[in-house]
Design a protein around this nucleic acid. Structure first.
Length: 610
DNA sequence: TTAGGGTTAG
């Protein structure tokens, strides 16, 4: 790709040098394409030279040249330089003005200047320029970042589209799906998706089918947007279901983007068989094997599902590694308790000249924290600002509090919180609260709890944590008080769910679940196991027991059992699984919201928080 | 035959 742009630039240079009669390209007509190549190669000085040449030759105010310049500066993350080129409304045709504003709005939006993009849109309306669906495509990604409550901003933008009639544009509909997904409104995204699907079906029925692939391209992006919407909001089962529907019923051929979304779900759900199917599909297509996005998703999936050798092999063999590739492999080792290896990889990444970003810093700090590498973690944190030019965010402070807290340095952790240049969020106080649970410090826990519930009053986990801290300390009055507080606030603990993959689909179990087709046999087996290893007869039958029984019934001897639980595995179930593993001689892996438990022959290795 | 646009990874 880079070569193509470089060729274009060299050809243009040669064209300018040759005489006008033998000139192979018209320098003026080639201007927009050449500017695009400069933007793709990140050559702002070349753009400035071309800009100067355009001014000298007097063609800089030609609509195509002007709009190309505006768009190019915006793409080069120089939106303010682009903005000064905006022509006055009186001196341009209406369509040129629209194109200029469109390029600018999109330029501001992709550079994260969302409010400025919205201001430009207002200015566009004030000066009488007309907007179209392309304006909206630039503007909609700003929705989730507007200073209103995010959903209000999105609804306002959606309403604006409905009023103008731009919402029927298939590309706008796709953008609306993504906009709602980005602020967590998956149900609204789905409504737009369903409407757009119906509209596409109606259009297909009414009009003679177009031979072009354009409509298919819109359909593909639409399905991809919705699969990603589910995937990014943690609704992995829904995403996989939609993927099946896409391929089997809608007949839309998936591409690399679809696969990235699907793999991300497999990673979160621990569904290696579905992922293997995806991997097979990918390996058949040579264009997929060089797609960095896809390879990163594969590394992440293999690392998360516990196949670190496979993840490492993919990582070693990939032609081009980005900071995302490094993050996937580093966090993979971190999750599985290999903090030392994760820290070494981070050093290798720096040595390879890859600039760290905030996300990779979180994975290396978390890896150090889980592996007890307190000093090393602190060293990386201290180097963030000076050596890497990264201002630590609340997520990094939360890691540091966790790092110190786990090491029992609770007072230091508190000092870090009070010295933070940004206001601590729920995660920071939550990390302190978690550390208080480990080190049984009720007094500090009360301080952390007061702060965390003020910031996140609806997060049930923190109430449960505080109640358990009181219980551990024998302070039953305190535990009862927290539970009353939860009840008054109408908070209920999220129901526990366990997932097992079998036969290409994911099976879901709730506590006391009787809805599975094999429920009778499953409950019978759990009863037998409880009789055998103890730990039965509690208030209910936890979902992980049902899931493990199902997995035992439906797997080959010697096959490793993998269960995903959405909440923490309780102590009773932990003991139960350990004993079951010993009695039946099977390896059982349970990943829950906080830990990765691997049971083999009566031993359990809890490989750290993640 | 030249200007503005949608979906993807950690």
């Amino acid at each position: 790709m880079e070569g193509r742009h470089l060729d274009a630039l060299l050809r243009y240079r040669d064209a300018l040098r040759s005489s006008a009669s033998s000139c192979p390209v018209d320098p003026f007509f080639a201007f927009p394409a050449v500017l695009k190549s400069c933007a793709a190669l990140s050559l702002p000085s070349a753009v400035a030279q071309l800009h100067a040449r355009a001014v000298r030759s007097g063609c800089h105010s030609h609509p195509f040249v002007l709009t190309s310049l505006i768009s190019t500066y915006a793409r080069l993350s120089l939106p303010h330089l682009a903005a000064v080129l905006l022509p006055p409304a009186s001196s341009s045709s209406s369509s040129t003005l629209t194109v200029c504003y469109n390029a600018l709005i999109s330029g501001f939006a992709v550079n994260g200047l969302h409010i400025s993009a919205l201001s430009l849109f207002r200015r566009m309306l004030r000066c009488g320029a007309s907007f179209n669906s392309i304006t909206m495509l630039g503007l909609l990604p700003c929705g989730p970042h507007l200073p209103l409550r995010p959903l209000s901003g999105c609804s306002a933008l959606h309403a604006c589209n409905v009023k103008a009639g731009t919402d029927v544009d298939p590309a706008v509909a796709n953008c609306l799906i993504t906009m709602y997904a980005r602020c967590g409104a998956v149900d609204l995204a789905r409504r737009v998706f369903d409407c757009a699907n119906s509209a596409a079906a109606a259009a297909a029925a009414a009009a003679p089918p177009l031979p072009t692939g354009e409509r298919d391209a819109h359909a593909l992006v639409r399905w991809n947007s919705m699969v990603s919407a589910y995937a990014q909001n943690g609704l992995a089962a829904e995403a996989l279901e939609l993927y099946q529907e896409m391929v089997e019923r809608a007949g839309v051929e998936p591409d690399a983007v679809t696969m990235v979304g699907v793999l991300s779900c497999c990673a979160n759900l621990g569904a290696p068989a579905v992922a293997r199917e995806v991997e097979q599909r990918i390996s058949g297509d040579p264009s997929f094997s060089t797609n960095t996005f896809l390879l990163n998703a594969l590394i992440n999936m293999n690392a998360r599902c516990g196949n670190l050798p496979r993840a490492q092999k993919l990582f070693d063999e990939m032609p081009h590694r980005t900071v995302v590739s490094w993050t996937a492999i580093i966090s993979g080792y971190g999750i599985h308790g290999e903090g030392r290896k994760a820290a070494e990889l981070f050093d290798k990444m720096l040595a390879a000249g890859v600039r760290p970003d905030g996300v990779v810093m979180v994975s290396v700090l978390a890896a150090c924290s889980h592996a007890g590498l307190t000093e090393e973690g602190l060293r990386h944190f201290r180097r963030m600002e000076g050596a890497h030019g990264l201002a630590p965010g609340t997520e990094h402070y939360a890691c540091v509090v966790d790092l110190l807290g786990r090491a029992g340095r609770l007072q230091e952790a508190q000092r870090v919180i009070s010295s933070m240049p940004v206001a601590p969020d729920g995660a920071v106080w939550g990390a302190l609260l978690g550390a208080c649970k480990i080190h049984r410090d009720v007094e500090t826990a009360e301080l952390a709890f007061r702060n965390v519930v003020a910031l996140e009053p609806g997060n049930v986990g923190y109430y449960v944590l505080m109640a358990n801290i009181y219980s551990d300390a024998g302070r039953l009055d305190g535990a009862a008080r927290v539970r009353v507080m939860m009840r008054r606030r109408g908070l209920r603990k999220e129901p526990g769910v366990s997932y097992v993959e079998h036969g290409g689909s994911v099976h879901t179990f709730f506590a006391d679940d009787g809805s599975h087709p094999q429920a009778g046999e499953i409950h019978r087996l759990v009863g037998e196991l409880e009789a055998l290893v103890g730990g039965g007869g509690g208030a209910g039958r936890h979902s992980e027991r049902l899931a493990v029984a199902f997995a035992l019934m439906n797997s080959e001897p010697g096959e490793k059992l993998v269960v995903i639980k959405n909440l923490r595995v309780c102590e009773d179930c932990h003991m139960f699984l350990r004993r079951v593993s010993a009695v039946v001689g099977r390896e059982i892996t349970v990943r829950d919201a906080t830990r990765f438990h691997h049971f083999a022959g009566g031993e359990c290795s809890c490989n750290g928080y993640w």
